[in-house]
Simulated assay, not measured.
Amino acid sequence: MTSDKRLTVPLFYNEFLLLLEDIALHPGFVMLCGDFNFHVDDAFNQNAVVFNDIISSASFSQLVAGPTHEAGHTLDLILTRALVNFVNEVKTSNPLPSDHAVVECWLNLSKPEQHKVKVKFRKFRDMDIDAFRYDIRSSTLCVTPSSDLNVLIDQYENVLADLMDVHAPETIPGVSPWYNNSLRKAKQDLRRWERLWNSSKLEVYRQIFRKQRILYKNMLEQAKKEYYRLSFEGCSARQLFQKVCRLSSPSSSKTLPSNEGMNRRQLAEHFSQFFSDKIDNIKCELDTIRDTSSFASAPVSSPKPATDVPPGEHHCMLQFDCVTVEAVKKLIIDSPSTSCELDPLPTWLVKKCVDELSPVIARIINLSLRNGHFPDSLEGANVNPLLKKTWTRS
């Protein structure tokens, strides 16, 4: 677009060439189609000649042969990579009352296979934090930490990863044991007829949907019966009793505290006292934070510049000061609870184990400062590009 907001043919050439160059860098099947409004069939049309040269320079080819407009020119085009031929039987027809013809073609492409994505997660809510902290204190990471920086980093990551697998192992969401491929196929058919009925509201689709729903319900019940029949076969009386008890009386977690020996009035007062104590604890924590903040914000007198340095001489910093465990602990607690998938532990869990991990992290920092070397294993990073707008609306 020019300064006076007019579209010009040279501007289209430049932008279209940039588009083809960007597409050429990506693998796969590419097809560009539409009304380009160039008479590519006319060898004496200057605009069409330039357009064909741009297509050839980007290793693309034009597949439509014959007129696509009532004036007898080829305006509607199909562009593909010259070396990848997956478009067959290109033809034109005029079934519509339009000045442009319909361009039809067959794509020699197979439907991609459906890939199942296995999702893994850790049950952090069921994790015993106290036991996890005890295992950290008893591990080689705290008992016999290495004096080599890279070895210590590997020790830190491996020990914590092993402890995570013990206390919060990765699990895959389970599927009901009676759910099989036949049920999956019947459910897919059920959803397909349901979508057809919702989109068309035809009575025939509603009847098919109802029949498929009854069929799926019966298949599901039959699969459950068969599964439990096979699981009960060969069981002893004790095993049979345990299975029946587990099915008829599922375990439920207690949501209320123990009220043994309390009447209703005492239980209500117990609840009231609990929340009162909770509010008092929050107030005390807020007062402590306010006192700490006021102390940290107090003005600090800046050191006076040294005046006893002889002219022509300069001070050199020969080494870094070692960080303290308390300084590392404060940095960990004050840091945001965001995590990266490269971290051996999520940040919120590191904060809960800060007393056990801060000496190790301080040791890693001090070894790095003392040796003047950044750990090799910490140089990796995950970069997630974000799509930003390349234009703004005026």
Rank of each mutant, 00 (worst) to 15 (best):
R210F: 07
R210D: 05
R210G: 00
R213T: 03
I214S: 09
I214R: 12
Y216W: 03
N218L: 04
M219S: 03
M219G: 01
L220C: 04
E221N: 14
E221I: 02
A223H: 01
K225R: 15
E226H: 00
Y228C: 02
R229K: 10
L230R: 11
L230T: 05
S231M: 13
C235G: 00
S236I: 02
A237R: 11
R238E: 15
Q239L: 06
Q239V: 05
L240C: 09
F241V: 07
F241R: 10
K243T: 06
K243G: 09
V244W: 02
R246L: 11
R246S: 15
R246H: 13
S251D: 12
S251N: 14
S252M: 08
L256T: 15
E260Q: 14
E260I: 12
E260L: 12
M262P: 03
N263G: 14
R264T: 12
R264W: 01
R265K: 11
A268Y: 11
H270N: 10
Q273M: 10
Q273N: 13
Q273Y: 03
Q273L: 13
F274Y: 14
F275Y: 10
D277N: 12
I279R: 09
C284F: 01
D287Q: 12
D287A: 09
S293L: 15
S297N: 09
P299M: 00
S301I: 07
S301E: 02
S302M: 09
P303E: 03
P305C: 04
A306I: 02
V309Y: 01
V309M: 07
G312H: 03
E313K: 08
M317E: 08
F320A: 06
D321L: 10
V323C: 08
E326T: 07
A327T: 14
